[in-house]
Amino acid sequence: MQPDAEVRLPADSAYVAVLRMTTAGIAARLDFTLDDIEDLRMAVGEASAMLLERARPGGQLITRYFLGENRVAVRISVDAVQPTPPETNSFAWQVLTTTASDVSAETGEDVLTISLTVTSTTSSAPA
């Protein structure tokens, strides 16, 4: 499935603010509530922080957005030397699962991905 939007940034924490701002803009365009926008921004920020801990120096942070009616699914991936999934009992993972639904992590050859979905409580279909 092709993403509706994709953002590629250096795997560096300095770019997380750009990613959070982009995420908020997408959610606002879909008429998400302010609370839902903040949940999505926070979830993307937490997922990015977890991934950047495992990022290969000089690698990329790739975020793919899949837009649907009342929801945004996000897949965030990072180049990793030896990808290992985050600990699901960590505080960061608990924050992530509180702000988003359908949260999962998967590893591939030299790639670590966290997927999450946020559903708006009162949004309308994409315009």
Results as ranks from 00 to 15, higher is better:
residue 2 Q to C: 11
residue 3 P to T: 00
residue 3 P to D: 02
residue 7 V to Q: 06
residue 8 R to A: 15
residue 9 L to T: 05
residue 9 L to A: 08
residue 11 A to G: 13
residue 13 S to I: 11
residue 15 Y to M: 10
residue 17 A to S: 15
residue 19 L to E: 13
residue 19 L to M: 12
residue 23 T to L: 14
residue 24 A to W: 06
residue 26 I to C: 07
residue 28 A to V: 04
residue 29 R to C: 03
residue 29 R to W: 04
residue 29 R to S: 12
residue 33 T to E: 11
residue 34 L to S: 09
residue 34 L to D: 08
residue 36 D to P: 04
residue 37 I to M: 07
residue 39 D to I: 01
residue 40 L to E: 01
residue 41 R to E: 14
residue 43 A to C: 05
residue 44 V to N: 04
residue 44 V to Q: 04
residue 47 A to K: 00
residue 49 A to V: 02
residue 49 A to E: 06
residue 49 A to C: 06
residue 50 M to A: 00
residue 52 L to T: 04
residue 54 R to W: 03
residue 55 A to I: 08
residue 56 R to A: 15
residue 56 R to H: 12
residue 56 R to D: 12
residue 58 G to D: 04
residue 59 G to Q: 04
residue 62 I to D: 15
residue 64 R to E: 14
residue 65 Y to H: 13
residue 66 F to D: 01
residue 69 E to N: 11
residue 70 N to V: 06
residue 71 R to S: 05
residue 73 A to P: 02
residue 75 R to C: 07
residue 75 R to E: 15
residue 76 I to R: 00
residue 77 S to I: 00
residue 78 V to L: 07
residue 80 A to R: 07
residue 80 A to T: 08
residue 82 Q to G: 08
residue 83 P to W: 08
residue 85 P to I: 13
residue 88 T to D: 12
residue 88 T to I: 12
residue 90 S to A: 06
residue 90 S to C: 07
residue 93 W to K: 03
residue 95 V to M: 15
residue 97 T to W: 10
residue 98 T to I: 09
residue 101 S to L: 04
residue 103 V to N: 05
residue 104 S to A: 07
residue 105 A to G: 04
residue 106 E to G: 06
residue 108 G to V: 09
residue 108 G to Q: 14
residue 109 E to R: 08
residue 111 V to T: 14
residue 113 T to H: 05
residue 114 I to V: 14
residue 115 S to T: 13
residue 115 S to P: 01
residue 116 L to F: 01
residue 117 T to Q: 14
residue 117 T to W: 07
residue 118 V to T: 00
residue 118 V to I: 07
residue 120 S to M: 09
residue 120 S to P: 10
residue 120 S to V: 09
residue 121 T to S: 09
residue 124 S to T: 13
residue 125 A to P: 05
residue 127 A to V: 06
